[in-house]
Simulated scan of single mutants.
Amino acid sequence: MLSVLGGTQRFFQVVLLFLVLAVFLMLGFLHVDFRLLTPLLRDEAQEPPVTNIMFLKTHKTASSTMLNLLYRFSESHNLSVALPKGSSFHLGYPWLFVTRYVEGMEQDGHLNHHFNIMCNHLRFNFPEVQKVMPNNTFYFSILRNPVSQLESAFIYYKNYVPAFQKVKSLDQFLADPWRYYNVSEGLNNVYAKNNMWFDFGFDNNAGAEVDYVRARLSEVELQFHLVLIADHFDESMVLLRRQLRWQLDDVVSFKLNARSQRTVSRLTPESQERVKHWCELDWKLYQHFNRTFWAQLHAEVSPRQLREELEQLRARRRELTNLCLQDPEPKNKTQIKDWNLRPYQSGHAEILGYNLRHDLDNTTLRICQRMAMPELQYMAHLYTLQFPNKPPKNIPFLK
Rank of each mutant, 00 (worst) to 15 (best):
L360Y: 02
A22N: 08
H90A: 03
V147S: 11
N322Q: 08
W178K: 15
W283Q: 13
R144Q: 11
N136V: 07
S253F: 09
Y212E: 14
L143R: 04
V210P: 08
K399H: 15
G86P: 11
D249T: 03
L111P: 07
L111N: 12
K333A: 07
D33I: 09
L91Y: 01
P269E: 14
V213S: 05
A192L: 06
V167P: 02
H381F: 12
C368E: 00
Y212I: 10
N182Y: 12
V161I: 12
T364M: 03
Y156L: 12
A295P: 04
L398Y: 03
F29I: 07
S184T: 13
I155C: 07
D176K: 14
R214P: 03
R242S: 10
P396F: 11
L240S: 08
Q13S: 08
R266F: 07
N182M: 11
F115A: 05
R245N: 15
S87Y: 13
L174P: 04
L91N: 00
P392A: 05
R35T: 13
P146L: 13
L17R: 07
L352W: 02
V132P: 13
T364F: 04
I229G: 05
D33V: 07
A22Y: 11
R42V: 13
V238R: 06
V98R: 14
L365T: 06
Q272E: 15
I142K: 02
L187G: 10
E185A: 14
N125R: 01
R123F: 01
E308V: 15
L122W: 01
T292P: 00
I155Q: 04
H90L: 04
V20S: 09
N194P: 00
S169L: 09
L398H: 05
A315G: 08
L382M: 09
G6H: 09
P388G: 01
Y160G: 07
Q377D: 07
I117A: 05
F97T: 03
E106V: 15
H288S: 10
R370L: 04
Y191E: 10
A153R: 02
E47T: 08
E270W: 12
L19Y: 11
N52F: 02
Q107Y: 14
F289T: 01
R316S: 09
